[in-house]
Simulated assay, not measured.
Amino acid sequence: MEQNELAKLYQAYGKGMILYAWSLTKQQSDAESLVSDAFYRLSLQEEAPRDIKFWLFRVIKNGFIDQQRRKKRWQFSLLNQEEKSIQQQPDERLIEQEQHQALYDSIEKLTPPYKEVLIFFYFLEWSIQEISNFLNLSNGQTRTILYRGRKKLKEDLSHD
């Protein structure tokens, strides 16, 4: 899309989109970030979506849901780590560190497509779509590589 078209769309829908995003996030900066992301995604489209207004609002809603999922995962993992560190004895922490090291070593042994997809998916928390776009693969190919990578990782870890 061209800059002129984006500017006109922002003039037409921007205030409503920020209000909607603010109703979801309750924070001005997060709302502006969601609206900005929606227009960025629109600028990447080769052809304009059929119902641009509804498409933009859907992108905002999906972006908000993704943010909440990331926050929830992050908070949950932080809480689990705090609980574990309080409850664990030094020998238990050592065993856990060795298990993490074994996992990292097993991932390093994998060939590039499996290794990359596993790192992107689990450590960088990229979506299947983001990985597919980055590696120029279809979503199905990416899912297959992820499945096979998990399988190879499981086999390698079960031998140890």
Rank of each mutant, 00 (worst) to 15 (best):
Q141A: 12
Y122E: 06
N133Y: 06
E46F: 10
S85V: 15
R93A: 12
A38R: 04
R148Q: 15
I65M: 02
L118F: 07
E108T: 09
F39R: 05
D51T: 00
K152L: 10
L110S: 08
S138M: 01
F121W: 10
L103H: 03
K151L: 12
L42M: 12
I131A: 06
I131F: 04
F121Q: 00
S85M: 15
R58A: 10
E83Y: 10
R143A: 07
E98T: 08
Y122I: 11
R58Q: 14
I145A: 07
Q68V: 05
K61G: 09
S43D: 02
S127Y: 10
Q87K: 08
E125Q: 13
K109Y: 05
E46T: 15
E116Q: 05
H100C: 04
E98C: 06
D105W: 11
L44A: 08
W126L: 13
E130T: 04
Q99S: 11
V59L: 00
Q67S: 13
N133K: 02
R58F: 06
I86V: 06
K53N: 09
E108K: 03
K53C: 05
T111D: 05
K84V: 07
Q67P: 00
A38D: 04
S132W: 01
D66K: 04
F57R: 01
E125L: 08
R69I: 14
I60H: 00
F54P: 06
A48G: 03
V59G: 00
R150P: 01
V117L: 04
K151E: 15
Q75N: 04
G149N: 01
R93S: 13
L124E: 14
E130Q: 14
E83V: 12
Q141K: 13
I119T: 02
N139R: 14
E47Y: 01
S36Y: 15
S77L: 13
Q129F: 03
I52Q: 05
P49Q: 06
D66P: 02
L118G: 02
L78V: 13
L56C: 03
E96H: 14
F120P: 04
S132M: 02
E47N: 08
I119N: 05
L94Y: 07
N133A: 02
Q141N: 09
Q81E: 14
S43H: 03
F76K: 12
R41V: 05
S77E: 13
W55E: 03
Q141D: 08
D91E: 14
K109I: 06
L94M: 07
F54Y: 12
D37N: 14
S43F: 07
P49L: 12
L110K: 07
A102L: 14
S127A: 04
N62C: 04
E47L: 01
S106C: 04
Y104T: 12
K53P: 00
E46L: 08
I107T: 12
Q88M: 13
G149D: 00
E82M: 08
E83R: 14
L124N: 11
Q129K: 11
D66S: 08
R143W: 09
A48F: 02
N136K: 15
I145H: 06
P113T: 08
F76A: 09
Y147Q: 15
N62E: 10
